[in-house]
Design a protein around this nucleic acid. Sequence first.
DNA 1: ACATCCACCTGCTCGC
DNA 2: TGCGAGCAGGTGGATG
Length: 283
Amino acid sequence: MPELPEVEVVRRGLEAHVLDRPITSVDVLHPRAIRRHVPGAADFAARMVGTEFVGAQRRGKYLWLELSSGAAVLAHLGMSGQMLVQPASATPEKHLRVRVGFLSDPELRFVDQRTFGGLSVEDVVVVDGTTLPVPVAHIARDPMDPKFDLTAAVAALRGKRSEVKRALLDQTVVSGIGNIYADEALWRTKLHGARPADSLSPAKARALLTAATEVMAEALNVGGTSFDALYVNVNGQSGYFDRSLAAYGQEGLPCPRCGRAIQREPFMNRSSFSCPRCQPRPR
DNA sequence: ACATCCACCTGCTCGC
DNA sequence: TGCGAGCAGGTGGATG
């Protein structure tokens, strides 16, 4: 469930369903799912059983559950991770990796087809007045953060020598933006992703980050973007923002602004989608 | 210090 | 029907 809106949908679901409930069991069904928890599965379980989750937090695409012990269970969903709230009796999913049982139903399940995601128990550290799990300390604030500083983010973006799309995807510049919302923000701002980040005027950079913020907020309002059953909330339901995408995945379809066919271009072993008329490639 | 590349996985779709 | 190639929402560690 990659980008910020989809992760926030999951965070809200966890907040509603798994807080303040005594944890009675933790089962790790695939060691790769906790590979970032260096002390291993037994320690991972021991640090959770007998405690409770007392808060659900997020920065960018990172999600964590605060433990009553003061530590945090950090989750990154990678490309295909899901956090599901299910009755313990429900049929195990094909890619079920970790289950967390409470004193009563329902239980929490981490499901991940591609295993790029994972869970770990982390110590926390205070950075700029915000308590974060250690691996999140280097990630920039995201645009939904009340302390997000747009002017500082504009400066960080314009300080990059790389192409602007790379800079948008750099989680140390601004967090939460992935391939879908980067393409949508560039389309809204009429910018080609290959433009050097340091060639943007402060106003254009500001417009780009504002567009990214707006498109992610709109997506969050409809439950996020989902093309298939891989991207779902804790109850297994998909969001609807795929219907509102202007550029991402729209190759060959008319640009909603000018009618020219949206093009797909290779980008870092993935794809970028843009309008060749509204977003001319820099020479 | 920075910027760039690619490995890490499974499954689905497409063309031959 | 099979089979390989290409593709998918991300990241960090190894390179330059």
